[in-house]
Amino acid sequence: MPEENPLVEMEREIVGGDFQRAGDVSSELKNILQQAGFPAPFNRRVVIASYEAEMNVVIHAYRGIFRVQIYSDRVHIEVDDEGPGIPDLELAFQEGYSTAPPHIREMGFGAGYGLSNMKKCSDRLHIDTRVEEGTRVIMDFFLPSFMKG
């Protein structure tokens, strides 16, 4: 991919365990995409994936940094967290598999669809994870080519 400067960059902190503000970052991102005029179906999948990534930090990690870069034809998201990491990535991708503790699941979070949703909604998903250290999620979303220009 040719290197070009993003048109808009955003960086936000996410606090682990802060359920009240969970989703704020994704809402903000949605507003930018909407104001930019990206097509609604594109925005929806970016926002769903971004929300899942954001929620993963809130549910599992201590803290995280959410970075997004918006280009004219794609959106790039990186979420870095300090947290427990994912011991078995393959298992984590299975729908319904969750390591969220019961009290979190009882609240309706951590149903085990996070990673599979992120995979479904993004065009490229890369996960780096180290147990007891943290996880980095990288996602790319490409605008359908007919929308360009």
């Binding site: 048109l7 808009v8 507003n31 930018i32 909407q34 104001q35 930019a36 005029g37 990206f38 609604a40 918006i70 004219s72």
Partner: peptide, 20 residues
């Protein structure tokens, strides 16, 4: 139908510039 009144500009580049 989507009304798209929230978008800042018809041109995506211009819209993002305006956002900044």
């Amino acid at each position: 139908e989507a009304k798209e009144v929230m978008r800042l500009d018809r041109d995506l580049h211009r819209a993002l510039e305006k956002y900044q």
